[in-house]
Design a protein around this nucleic acid. Structure first.
Length: 481
DNA sequence: GGGCAAATAT
DNA sequence: CATATTTGCC
């Protein structure tokens, strides 16, 4: 498919400014203010403020440096070191827009894309489609290779040749001079603290044939548009969560058409094969992209317009069952509620909100199951809520038990009882202590100003220790908290 | 998987 | 700042 960035963006602009959007659905109005002026100008697009004011060409890139640390540039935190200025740059680009809040890689990618486009137009009317496809393909293979290489030799990989790098020597080292190599190593080492970024090969050399002379740009462009295959993106390793948060969040909340996704999968397979043969490294399983450093290395080298549009389209925010009087509407929770045109796919599972209805179901299930069987998995199945995970339940159960324990403990003060202390319950009797009287745990919702917890409030101690978790083993007993 | 507690998100 | 949820661990 022919790529037409202008059309893609303009098409998107078509629904901009005055377009109505549904706040309830969490859709952010896509206005031209979301597009950095520089980019808009490059694409011949209008901006909210009229003619785009040529921004004092920000120091976008320093090819040499960028190239020397090609393999490490996926880390947003490193961008600042190359004049990309992170938030500062964003602010400069468009102080009043949402842009300031977007991940730099995103803006950078766009800026890079536009810049390159202008350049190309001046020189030769080469097909942009071919250009991007080629670039994406190369980058794609490279990315996959990087991952594969990292997996093969995570701790020592220091020189990984690019699959499309013709000048790389065959002995595994690159054609760089020792000084270049030193600098590369230094840069990479100095700017990378820990985590995958480091292991992804700091000394990778970009191919000179890349359309985008600055591989960093392509890398970012790629990162900005690529999407994980899984519907649920795991968080990056804790060690560098803060560093990569922007990317994780970004890629997690944007979606792209399923067809593009499929194409990406196919492309990934191809690239994987290419990378494998080129490097001799085993190809990392596709699942490796989950929670991996790369937001997803399955970008399709085709139909970039779709990806572009998708990249700009925020995925609906978590759609939680409305806490109305009803109770039948909580058959499913979160995820993929984006009812736009069915062309997108939610990536990240939204934070679950335990609405009163949901909590009620939870309690019902718990009571029905009884102390002994009221464990996460069982409860989850009993509740039978689409999208609800065992983890969700486990977490809620934990809190639930804690509250009960607390209540039990507090009320125990005056009329001590044998069973109140969660230390150890024995009889299986209290299994069903009047479920009816128990459900009113549900209380305030929206009471006061803040969000009230379904479990908060004067939790009625009515039903005895229905759920005093079998105090593990520790002496932590059931008291304390 | 269950249960906890630390880490995060709100 | 206090909670509500999610994650990481054992």
């Amino acid at each position: 498919m022919a790529y037409d960035a202008v059309q893609a963006l303009q098409g998107f602009y078509g629904i901009k400014e005055d377009a109505s959007f549904d706040p309830a659905a969490g859709l952010v109005p896509l206005t031209s203010s979301l597009i950095p002026p520089l980019v808009a100008q490059a694409f011949g697009l209008p901006t909210l403020g009229g003619a785009p004011t040529p921004q004092p060409q920000p120091t976008l890139a320093q090819p040499q440096h960028a190239q020397s640390v090609y393999g490490t540039m996926m880390n947003p935190a490193l961008m600042g070191a190359f004049g990309f200025g992170g938030a500062q740059y964003a602010a400069t680009m468009h102080p009043q827009s949402h842009v300031a809040g977007l991940p730099m890689g995103y803006l950078q990618a766009l800026a890079a894309a536009s810049q390159h486009r202008q350049q190309q137009q001046q020189q030769q009317q080469q097909s942009t489609a071919a250009l991007l496809a080629q670039t994406a393909g190369a980058l794609h293979a490279h990315t996959a290779a990087l991952a594969a290489a990292a997996r093969a030799a995570p701790a020592t990989s220091s020189a990984i040749s690019h699959p499309l790098m013709p000048t790389a020597s065959q002995d595994g080292t690159t054609g760089r001079t020792s000084s270049e190599q030193d600098r590369t190593t230094t840069n990479a080492t100095a700017r990378t603290s820990s985590g995958p970024p480091t292991s992804l090969g700091a000394a990778v050399r970009p191919t000179p044939s890349l359309p985008f002379q600055n591989p960093l740009m392509m890398q970012n462009l790629y990162a900005a548009f690529a999407q994980p295959h899984s519907a649920y993106v795991q968080s990056p390793a804790t060690s560098f969560t803060s560093t990569l948060a922007p990317y994780a969040v970004h890629s997690a909340y944007y979606a792209r058409p399923p067809d593009a996704n499929a194409a990406a999968m196919a492309a990934a397979a191809a690239a994987a094969a290419a990378a494998t043969s080129a490097y001799g490294y085993p190809q990392a399983p596709s699942s490796a992209c989950n929670g991996a450093f790369h937001p997803g290395y399955g970008a399709a080298p085709v139909d970039y317009s779709a990806a572009l549009a998708a990249a700009y389209r925020p995925v609906a925010a978590p759609v939680m069952p409305a806490p109305s009087s009803g109770q039948q509407q909580c058959q499913s929770v979160g995820e993929e509620e984006y009812a736009d045109d069915g062309s997108t796919r939610a990536i990240k599972r939204p934070r679950l909100v335990w609405t009163p209805q949901l909590h009620k179901k939870f309690e019902t299930a718990v009571h029905k199951l009884g102390v002994e069987k009221a464990v996460p998995k069982n409860i989850m199945q009993e509740m039978n809520i689409d999208g609800l995970t065992r983890e969700n339940v486990a977490s809620h159960l934990q809190k639930y038990r804690m509250l009960r324990r607390r209540d039990a403990t507090s009320s125990e003060g005056r009329d001590s009882d044998s069973r109140t202390a969660g230390t150890k319950r024995s009889e299986p009797e209290s299994t069903r202590p009047a479920p009816a009287a128990t459900t009113q745990t549900t209380s305030t919702l929206g009471g006061g100003g803040g969000a009230a917890s379904v479990m908060t409030g004067p939790a009625p101690v009515s039903s005895p220790a229905v759920l005093l978790a079998p105090a593990p083993s520790s002496s932590t007993a059931a008291v304390a908290m």
